[in-house]
């Protein structure tokens, strides 16, 4: 499904044999998607959760069976478990607290589409995603950021493919709506950005 699933599959197979360089390749291919997904769930602690996840991934690498796309789904599942554990430990710390300040910097309405997206930081973008309901946020992140297909995303989330499809659709629609409405902010916000 993704551009480098073939390379990823080869790298994983070699890493299972003990090839360290192959493991590094697999890491680079997978980590960005995992990080983006984790940011949407746990926010700022994404790197810590990702580290925990990679510990488990490295430890259980021998158990994995599958191709590159399967590896993405497998690692996403592990990452999700770690994220849920993290959330439980944190006792429902609100994801968006550290991120809300950045919402003031959202671009104004007369920015073009691309300009608006450019001036958005990752954190701001994820702040928008954080405002989705959790199941929609997860579905959207898994489908778009991690790059899983429908059945794989359903398996990671433990839901039926139809439910995941619905959640993805609704999440994207709501995200688009948020983008449109959040674009209408005070000009002062843009000034801040320009002067920064």
């Amino acid at each position: 499904m993704q551009a480098f699933d073939g390379e990823l599959g080869v790298a994983v197979a070699r890493a299972q044999e003990g090839d360290e360089a192959a493991f590094a390749v697999a890491y680079r291919l997978v980590q960005p998607g995992l990080l983006g997904y984790l940011r949407g769930i746990v926010g700022d602690d994404a790197e810590d959760v990702a580290s925990d996840a990679w510990l488990e991934i490295a430890r259980d690498l021998g158990r994995f069976k599958g191709d590159g796309a399967g590896f993405r789904g497998w690692t996403a599942t592990i990452a999700r478990h770690r994220a849920l554990d993290h959330l439980r430990r944190q006792k429902v710390r609100p994801r968006a607290t550290a991120l809300e300040n950045d919402l003031l910097e959202l671009p104004g309405v007369h920015d073009t589409h691309d300009q608006a997206l450019e001036s958005l930081s990752t954190t701001q973008a994820l702040a928008l995603v954080a405002r989705l309901p959790r199941d929609q946020a997860e579905a959207v992140l898994l489908r778009v950021v991690v790059g899983l297909d429908g059945p794989a995303a359903a398996r990671v989330l433990g839901k039926r493919p139809g439910a995941v499809r619905t959640a993805t659709h609704r999440g994207l629609k709501r995200l688009a709506q948020l983008l449109r409405t959040e674009g209408v902010t005070e000009d002062g916000a843009r000034t801040l950005g320009e002067s920064g």
Binding site: G33, L117, L120, T122, V129, V140, V144, V145, L172, A176
Partner: peptide
């Protein structure tokens, strides 16, 4: 919104 998420990634 898809673009946004791609931007995130």
């Amino acid at each position: 919104s898809v673009d946004l998420l791609l931007a995130v990634a």
